[in-house]
Every structure is written in C-alpha cells, then in structure tokens.
C-alpha cells in the first residue's frame, strides 16, 4: 500500500533548543536539539514530575496540531489532483463526467512559537542543557537524561 510522507522539522529557538511536553503532567520544557540527537537512550524524564516515556511521546500538542494541519492539506491536494486526472479522462458524450472543481484552499501552517520565558541551566549530572521555568528550578527538578533528582 502506497502512502504519503512528509517530514516536519521541529522548530528550535534562537539558542538551538526544542520544545517538549510531558505526556504525564503536560509540563513544557526545552532541551538542546543537538544534545537530544546525541543522546543514546530513547527514554527521557520529565524535569517536573520525574516520570518517563519514550522521547517521541514528549512531542508538544502544538507540534501535533501543526502536523495534522499539514497532513490534511496534503490529503486535500492529493484528492484534488486525483479528480483532476479523472476530469482529463472525461470522454465527450459520456453520461458520466468528472469535474474536479476549484482547488482546495490549504489551511495556513500553524506558527510554532516556543516558550521564551524559560531559564537555561547546565545539568551537573549529565553536563547537558535544559530550559525550564525559574520557579521549577527553585522547587527542584529531575534530569531529563538520567532521571536523577537535582
């Protein structure tokens, strides 16, 4: 079965950090994108609640919505192209005629804004970087990489 695929790039902030959202408590934080790529483990921990999951589950809702919009736009374009092909195959005098209609108006891509009120810290245990709210730092956080309480 053939399908479509399209890669959607995770938008980074000006410091090269990408946004993540805990699937358990919905806490949002940022990690250095290059350090995430270097990380060997698939599992990360939420800095706030300390619970863990595969990194793919930490994708933000905003990002998912953006992906859904792009998927819908792609599907609409593909359907329109398919009907256009059928329209071209219309035979004069045939009782069945295909008409593709006007092309669909794509929904505008979602603008992905990262939180910028977060504070960057260097994790003493793993020597990597994390951005969280200042208050969260004061309350105590978990290292997203090794899961230790800092």
């Amino acid at each position: 079965m053939s399908g479509w695929s399209k890669k959607i790039a995770l938008p980074n902030d000006s410091d090269g950090f990408a946004s993540f959202e805990c699937p358990h408590c919905e806490y949002r934080f940022k990690l250095s994108a290059s350090e995430v790529i270097e990380n060997e483990s698939e599992e990360i921990f939420c800095p706030s609640c300390g619970l863990s999951s595969e990194i793919g589950n930490f994708i933000t809702k905003q990002m998912l919505e953006a992906a859904q919009i792009q998927a819908i736009n792609m599907a609409q374009e593909a359907f329109h192209a398919m009907f256009k092909d059928l329209e071209r195959s219309n035979k004069p005098g045939s009782s069945v005629q295909w008409k593709a209609g006007s092309p669909p108006i794509p929904e505008p891509d979602k603008v992905l804004f990262g939180q910028d009120d977060l504070e960057e810290i260097q994790l003493p245990c793993c020597n990597k970087h994390l951005k969280v709210e200042t208050l969260e730092m004061q309350l105590g956080i978990y290292c997203p990489y090794c899961g230790n309480q800092i």
Partner: peptide, 16 residues
C-alpha cells in the same frame, strides 16, 4: 536515588 528512578520508570509504564 536509584529507588526513586526505578519507581518512576515502573509507574510511568503503568500510567501510559
């Protein structure tokens, strides 16, 4: 620390 981490990992498995 080890107990805390393992507990959170096991709890995470149940929660998801």
């Amino acid at each position: 620390k080890k107990i805390s981490k393992t507990f959170r990992q096991i709890a995470s498995r149940l929660l998801s």
